[in-house]
Amino acid sequence: MTKEAPATGDQRRTQLLRGVLDLCLLSLIEERPRYGFELAEALAAGGLEPVSDGSIYPLLARMERAGLISSYRAPSPTGGAPRKYYRLTDAGCAELGRGRADWLAFAGSAGRILTATTQSTGEHST
């Protein structure tokens, strides 16, 4: 039996982001219709920078195929070629609601365990 090496900080961050990136994209799109570059910028501004900007496109394509988002072309506010904007569908709204509830429950549980362990061992985070 092989034992996996413990995840480094970056790997853990990437794994956590992978699990929640679709919800973050849905949430940003819920705010207002956005195009790919805007989504990448908003993620980075929120402190969630994916490994590469382009990794959001397969996810967007999968969500569009699943009917969670739809797209349309419109001129970009910065000029240049028209951009492909994504907007939330009703199914996407429902999925985001469920996903939010799941995430908050999960993050709450994980947070409680992590906090309790820290308190019992007397460690203090700085």
Partner: peptide
Amino acid sequence: MLDELSAHLEDA
């Protein structure tokens, strides 16, 4: 897809 990627590369 090419249009979308091209626009993203330009913006980036």
